[in-house]
């Protein structure tokens, strides 16, 4: 790695070349993404309207709207969060606060969580299909889909919350203990608020994953494009709808663009709102 001895113009030349390559790469990346986003926006914007957002699809999705898909997506994500947030938060606190970091068991738990966080969503889909749909007899339903996604999101949520709990300086715990604060107070008044940004980040990541997920939902929550009337109904998530229009419905492209635009818009909105909230929260906490 030691710099070769060279004549003085060479390093300068190298310097310029590398800078050029860096800017070119960034230009390429930006162009690609602008291309992608503009394609979706330009092709989709003409179709999107309140009518499109609220009404049911007709003619296999070539006409009509995406109302039922939005409802189904919301319900699936709701089930997913309802199951995974309490479990994830509780588990993360146990891992970070109630176990010894060096203990063999908790190390193994952490490692398995890392593996599970990396497991392809379709494998969770397989599990959900076998367990929720068939074994528990929930069939193709929003409940099956939501709980499958909960399993998928759970490791992410646990790990990010745990990491942010661990990142809290030990001094806070020590001085809380030195004041005779109980664990309950320490956890609820001090640690959870401090870990909230990390938890929120994990949560947003999880919501993003859940809303974007397609593969695991194909065979757990199903395809039915009617408005769902209960959690036990089958329902088509927005992402599944895009896939179906693109692959199985000739002439479905314009509505696929529009659905993609809505989905991406929703995800962007969630992203921006969450970072805004995190900023506000931080500001509030520090003043």
């Amino acid at each position: 790695m030691v710099n070769k001895r060279s004549s003085p113009w060479l390093p300068l030349f190298q310097e310029r070349c590398v800078a050029l390559v860096v800017w070119l790469a960034v230009g390429l990346v930006t162009t690609l993404f602008l291309w992608l986003v503009s394609e979706i926006v330009l092709q989709g914007i003409g179709v999107v309207s309140w009518e499109f957002i609220l009404s049911a699809p007709q003619n296999a999705g070539r006409d009509g709207g995406i109302g039922p898909m939005l409802v189904a997506t919301a319900l699936i994500v709701g089930v997913c969060l309802g199951v995974s947030v309490p479990l994830g938060l509780g588990t993360a606190i146990v891992l970070a606060e109630y176990t010894n970091e060096n203990r063999r068991l908790s190390q193994w738990v952490r490692r398995s969580l890392d593996v599970l966080a990396g497991v392809p969503s379709i494998v969770f889909g397989l599990f959900g299909h076998a367990f929720f749909c068939l074994f528990l007899g929930l069939g193709f339903s929003l409940l099956s889909g939501g709980m499958t996604l909960a399993c998928m999101v759970l490791p992410l949520l646990i790990r990010s919350t745990e990491e942010s709990l661990r990142a809290i300086p030990r001094e806070y715990r020590l001085s809380a203990a030195a004041l005779g604060l109980s664990r309950w107070t320490t956890v609820t008044r001090l640690l959870i608020p401090l870990a909230l940004p990390g938890f929120a980040a994990g949560l947003i990541l999880g919501v993003g994953r859940a809303m974007a997920e397609t593969a695991a939902l194909l065979f757990t929550s199903g395809y039915v494009d009617r408005f769902p009337t209960s959690l036990l109904d089958s329902g088509r998530a927005l992402s599944v709808h895009i896939w179906d229009l693109a692959m199985n419905v000739p002439g479905g492209n314009s509505h696929a663009y529009a659905s993609a635009l809505v989905l991406v818009g929703l995800l962007f909105a969630i992203n921006l709102t969450s970072s805004f909230i995190a900023d506000q929260w931080k500001k509030h906490a520090l003043t």
Binding site: I242, M247, A256, A260, L267
Partner: peptide, 13 residues
């Protein structure tokens, strides 16, 4: 944060 199905769709068209 863009869903993979959207990348796939873009790739497809």
């Amino acid at each position: 944060g863009i869903p993979s199905v959207v990348y796939g769709f873009w790739g497809l068209v």
